[in-house]
């Protein structure tokens, strides 16, 4: 463990909690893409299948449980409890166009063809693009609630910090996982446009609105 990865995990946790609080406090999931949340739940489910038979550390197991529980709780809030506030008209990204390429790619490029490893690889590729429905929805509505922009910033920062963690691990442990690094870089690049808007607008107290 290193400070970059710890900060990354904390950002990730903050993002998930901010989203849950936003929906719970405002009793509304307006502006939130349920499809992205479905993809995230799928990412954690396929990545943490080893939760019950591979023990890395208490921290690792606890965080996995938190990520799994919170992602399904978010799905429950969006699709059950506050279903009436779900903006399905704007949440129209075709997630099969993400799922199918990720399945194919995880069969073509993977470290190992064991079921657990294939699921892990699939989850890495899927996580890289899981935010697209949300970014697509923000681009369609042209704006996002400030709290939602904080959620997106924290979520983007988490994987950006993981890139720093991989650089650190490369130089200190000569550890490198090409699949995770390439997917992580793509994932972070997808946030670039959002990061720019967030820093130039939200941090200056303005609303998060895309230039018309």
């Amino acid at each position: 463990m290193n400070i970059f990865r710890l900060l990354g995990d904390i950002c990730h946790l903050v993002a998930i909690i901010v989203l849950l609080l936003k929906i719970w406090k405002t009793r509304s999931c307006a502006g939130i893409s349920g499809k992205s949340q479905i993809l995230f739940a799928l990412v954690y489910t396929t990545r943490y299948v080893d939760l019950f038979f591979t023990y890395v550390s208490l921290y690792n197991s606890v965080m996995k449980v938190i990520f799994l529980a919170s992602s399904y709780a978010t799905l429950y809030l969006i699709y059950v409890k506050f279903k009436a506030t779900y903006d399905f008209n704007h949440d129209t990204f075709r997630i099969e166009f993400l799922l199918i390429p990720c399945v194919i790619l995880s069969l073509l490029i993977t470290h190992d063809y064991s079921p657990v490893e294939l699921l892990w690889t699939f989850s890495i590729y899927l996580e890289a693009v899981a935010i697209l429905p949300q970014l697509f929805m923000v681009s369609k509505t042209g704006e996002a609630e400030t709290i939602t922009s904080h959620y997106l910033f924290a979520l983007g920062a988490y994987r950006a910090l993981y890139i720093v963690n991989w650089i650190y691990r490369y130089y200190t442990e000569s550890f490198i996982d090409g699949i995770a690094v390439v997917a992580g870089i793509i994932q972070t690049i997808l946030y670039a446009d959002f990061f720019y808007l967030y820093i130039t607008k939200v941090l200056k107290g303005k609303d998060f609105k895309l230039p018309a």
Binding site: H12, D50, T54, V56, N60, H111, D112, W120, F175
Partner: peptide, 10 residues
């Protein structure tokens, strides 16, 4: 064993 198949990151 290829250490990549033992993922210690979240």
């Amino acid at each position: 064993e290829d250490d990549n198949t033992h993922h210690d990151e979240l």
